[in-house]
Computed example of a mutant assay.
Amino acid sequence: MEIRHPIHPRDAAQFSTERMRAEFLVQGLFQPGEVKWVYTHHDRMLIGGVVPVEAPVTVSQVPELHTEYLLERREIGIVNIGGPGTVTVDGEVYGLARRECLYVGLGKRTLSFGSVDRAQPARFYLVSAPAHQAYPTRKTGPQDAEFEQLGSDDQSNRRTLYRFIHANGVQSCQLMLGMTELAPNNLWNTMPAHLHDRRSEVYLYFDLDPAARVFHFFGEPGETRHLVVANEEAVISPSWSIHSGVGTRSYTFIWAMAGENYTFKDMDPVAMDDLR
């Protein structure tokens, strides 16, 4: 497991590009036959990737957490961004097609990840947060999630936002998770920007052409920086940072939040005049 420590915004403003990428960019999550973990002390979120190929990959204990099993004091959201797969939760099997999501709550002891076709393996993206109450395991996806149409073509930001794990959908203790898909030829996400000082957020960019990149904007409104992000890379966004981006081509991203409040619209808008 790779561990990332909290960073103060005044310190982050002095970082080189290399240091920014080392602290906030998550690469190499999806490795065949393995489970990869990155632990961030920003709201103690745990970010992972699993690509089962020849055999299922089972996750029970994560030694660095110093608990008997992964979900002893945690909950987890799982999104499949690859071929058809299965997630087995304490012996119960759930099929997950591409872009479908599974929530697993506090107290479940064993997760096992499999692919239906090893030639087109599943690619499971995992986000976990601490939890103090158990909620039922539930599956969802774009076909039955609450969604919202945002933006416009003239602003190059027309997109569909799907809410998977949230107060009015799949219930959880504190984790919120969803997906935003940009329409063809639209490039911007989350601009005008906002903050939510009571929650950290993680973005995973995917469905991005291998030659394309997303320029992810980051930092306090008056001290912005950017990270150049490739397909299937994630960005850890602390509570003090904006999180916005523009791609060289359209793309999709999974957003996940954890922290103080459990209200999706708990946001502090940032005026364009305040961005630097």
Score class of each variant (00 low, 15 high):
residue 3 I to K: 14
residue 9 P to D: 00
residue 11 D to W: 11
residue 14 Q to T: 14
residue 18 E to Q: 08
residue 19 R to N: 07
residue 22 A to F: 14
residue 23 E to F: 09
residue 23 E to Y: 08
residue 26 V to A: 08
residue 30 F to I: 04
residue 35 V to F: 12
residue 36 K to R: 13
residue 41 H to V: 02
residue 42 H to A: 07
residue 44 R to V: 00
residue 44 R to G: 08
residue 45 M to N: 01
residue 47 I to V: 09
residue 47 I to G: 11
residue 48 G to E: 04
residue 54 E to Y: 08
residue 56 P to T: 01
residue 56 P to M: 02
residue 56 P to C: 03
residue 58 T to Y: 10
residue 61 Q to A: 10
residue 61 Q to C: 09
residue 62 V to Y: 04
residue 62 V to K: 01
residue 63 P to G: 03
residue 66 H to T: 04
residue 69 Y to T: 00
residue 71 L to N: 03
residue 79 V to W: 14
residue 82 G to Y: 02
residue 82 G to W: 07
residue 84 P to I: 04
residue 89 V to F: 09
residue 89 V to D: 01
residue 91 G to E: 05
residue 91 G to P: 02
residue 95 G to I: 02
residue 105 G to L: 01
residue 105 G to M: 02
residue 109 R to K: 14
residue 109 R to Q: 09
residue 110 T to R: 14
residue 113 F to N: 01
residue 114 G to A: 15
residue 121 P to K: 03
residue 121 P to S: 07
residue 122 A to G: 03
residue 125 Y to A: 02
residue 126 L to G: 02
residue 130 P to C: 10
residue 131 A to L: 08
residue 142 P to E: 04
residue 146 E to S: 15
residue 149 Q to A: 12
residue 149 Q to S: 10
residue 152 S to L: 14
residue 157 N to C: 02
residue 158 R to C: 01
residue 159 R to L: 09
residue 159 R to A: 07
residue 160 T to V: 10
residue 164 F to L: 05
residue 166 H to R: 11
residue 170 V to S: 05
residue 173 C to G: 06
residue 174 Q to M: 15
residue 175 L to R: 01
residue 178 G to I: 10
residue 178 G to W: 05
residue 184 P to E: 08
residue 184 P to I: 00
residue 186 N to Y: 07
residue 190 T to G: 03
residue 192 P to N: 01
residue 193 A to C: 13
residue 196 H to A: 10
residue 197 D to E: 15
residue 198 R to H: 10
residue 200 S to P: 11
residue 201 E to R: 03
residue 201 E to S: 01
residue 207 D to G: 02
residue 208 L to I: 13
residue 211 A to N: 10
residue 212 A to D: 07
residue 216 H to C: 04
residue 218 F to Y: 07
residue 218 F to R: 04
residue 220 E to R: 11
residue 220 E to M: 12
residue 221 P to Y: 12
residue 221 P to N: 06
residue 224 T to P: 05
residue 226 H to G: 06
residue 227 L to G: 01
residue 229 V to A: 04
residue 230 A to F: 11
residue 230 A to T: 07
residue 231 N to E: 05
residue 232 E to G: 01
residue 242 I to D: 01
residue 243 H to P: 02
residue 248 T to S: 15
residue 248 T to E: 13
residue 250 S to T: 09
residue 251 Y to K: 05
residue 251 Y to C: 02
residue 252 T to S: 15
residue 253 F to A: 02
residue 254 I to M: 09
residue 255 W to G: 04
residue 256 A to T: 06
residue 258 A to L: 13
residue 260 E to T: 11
residue 260 E to Q: 14
residue 263 T to F: 14
residue 264 F to P: 02
residue 264 F to I: 13
residue 266 D to R: 07
residue 267 M to Y: 12
residue 267 M to S: 11
residue 267 M to G: 05
residue 268 D to I: 12
residue 268 D to K: 12
residue 270 V to S: 07
residue 271 A to H: 11
residue 271 A to S: 09
residue 272 M to C: 09
residue 276 R to K: 14
